[in-house]
Design a protein around this nucleic acid. Structure first.
Lengths: 221, 221
DNA sequence: TAGATTGTTAATCGATTAACAATC
DNA sequence: TAGATTGTTAATCGATTAACAATC
C-alpha cells in the first residue's frame, strides 16, 4: 500500500465513519423494502419502530440495518430524517448510478425480464442480449440480440459487468464461462444449475426448483 | 390429542424412523440440485463425498442432508444406493404427486411462467390464471384465465392450495387477501412487497430488487 | 487389514433477539 | 421531567464446519 492510498483510505473512513462498506446478504435484501416504504410515507422523520411494525420485523434488526446505512445518527425520540435515509439507502443499493447488464438466453423468461419496466428504478439497464437461436444481430424491444459466439467480444467492448443468465441447463456452464471471459463479475442465474465460477465472481441463484421445494414441502407439513 | 391420532403418530414414526418430517429451508433448497446430479450419473452407488465435490459444498453438510432424507442408512465405503436416494428425494420434494397452482397476474412474467415447461418435472401444474385486465374467461396456452373477482370462488372450487403471485405492487395486498380467502396456503410471491398473511400461510419471496441489491452491491465491493 | 465413508458430537460462526444504559 | 427512541453489549438460535469413533 502506498502512502497516497493509505491517506485516501483514512480520509474516506473519516468522511463517513458511520457507514460500513460491507453489509450482510440479509440486510441488503431488506433494504429495498425499507426504501419502498420510505418513499411512500410523507412524514419528515421515521423511526425503526415504525418500519419494523410495517413489515412485522424485529425492532432491533431494523435499527441495526438503519445504523449500518445511515450517514447521520438517528435522534432519540425522533428517529431518522426520511429524506436523508432514502438517499443513504439509494446510495448503498447503487440506485444513483446505472448498472448495465447483458442477458443471455432470450426465451420466455428472458423476454419477460427484458420487458420488465421495474428495473429502471433499480438502476439496472439491460443493454444487449445473446441467444443460441440467433444467427446475426437482431433487435428486441430496442435492444440488440447477438449470436452467442459474439458474447465475449461484445461484453468486453461494452464493458458490462453484470450478466443475467436465463439459458437452459444443458449448455449453462459453457455459456457461463464465455460470460466470465467477456469480463462479467456478477451473474444473476435463473438456470437450474450451480455454476462453477472463479474466486471473485458472485452468483445470485434464482432457482425455481429450490423455491418450489420450500413451498411444496410446506403444503405437506 | 385423541388416542387414535396418538397411535397414528407412533406408527408413522416407526415406519420411517430415519426420515425426519421437517427440513431446514437450506436443505430443501439444496435437494433439487442433488436430485438433478443423481439423475445424471450412472453409477449404482453415490457418496456424500462425490456430491459435495460436484457442487463445491462441505462434505458434512451433504452427509447431513442425505441422512435426513434417505430411508436407508448409507453404507460405509459405498455410500448410498443411487436409485433409492433419487426416490427418497423425490418423495421429500413431492415430485411424485402433482401440486396444482393458480397464477395471479398474467403479464409478461406471469405468461413466461405459464409457458415454462420445467414445472411439470417439479410436480407443478398451473391450472388457472387471474388478471385484472380480463373481463370474462379467456384461454391462454390451454389454461383458463378469469377476472380477479372470481378468484376466491374458482380457487375454492378447484381446491388449489398454491398461488403464484405476479401482480403489480399497487393492489398486491388486496389481491393476496382474496387468494387466501379462496383457500390458498402457500404463495410464491414475485411482487416487490412483503405480503401480510395470517399464521400458517407460507410466502416464498422472489424479489427482483432484493436479488439485484446483492449483485449491485458486490459490483461496488 | 486398511481406508473410504458413514453418522454423531462438539466447536464455530453469523444472524437474530433480548436487555439496558444513554439521550433528546 | 417522562418516555420514546437510539445504539451497544450480551444471550440465543440455527446452520455450518471440525473432529472423531464406528463400520464394512
Amino acid at each position: 500500500m502506498t502512502v497516497h492510498s493509505h491517506i485516501d483510505n483514512m480520509l474516506s473512513i473519516q468522511e463517513d465513519a458511520r457507514v460500513s462498506n460491507t453489509f450482510s446478504l440479509q440486510t441488503l435484501q431488506r433494504l429495498p423494502y425499507y426504501l419502498d416504504f420510505l418513499r411512500k410515507i410523507e412524514t419528515d422523520n421515521v423511526s425503526a419502530t415504525v418500519i419494523a411494525a410495517e413489515f412485522g420485523l424485529n425492532e432491533v434488526q431494523v435499527r441495526k440495518d438503519l445504523a449500518s446505512v445511515s450517514r447521520e445518527a438517528g435522534q432519540p425520540r425522533k428517529g431518522f430524517v426520511t429524506k436523508s435515509l432514502i438517499r443513504d439507502i439509494e446510495d448503498v443499493l447503487g440506485y444513483a448510478h446505472i448498472d448495465e447488464a447483458v442477458i443471455v438466453g432470450v426465451g420466455h423468461l428472458g423476454t419477460a425480464l427484458v420487458n420488465y419496466k421495474g428495473f429502471a428504478s433499480y438502476g439496472l439497464k439491460i443493454v444487449a442480449g445473446f441467444d443460441i437461436s440467433v444467427d446475426e444481430e437482431i433487435w428486441l424491444n430496442h435492444m440488440p440480440v447477438y449470436p452467442v459466439d459474439r458474447m465475449a467480444d461484445v461484453i468486453s467492448e461494452l464493458g458490462v459487468r453484470l450478466g443475467i443468465f436465463t439459458v437452459g441447463a444443458e449448455s449453462a456452464q459453457e455459456v457461463c464461462n464465455q460470460l466470465i471471459e467477456g469480463g462479467v463479475e456478477a451473474i444473476w442465474n435463473f438456470a437450474p444449475v450451480m455454476l462453477q465460477v472463479p474466486e471473485g465472481i458472485i452468483v445470485q441463484n434464482e432457482n425455481m426448483a429450490s423455491a418450489l421445494a420450500v413451498l411444496s414441502h410446506h403444503l405437506r407439513q
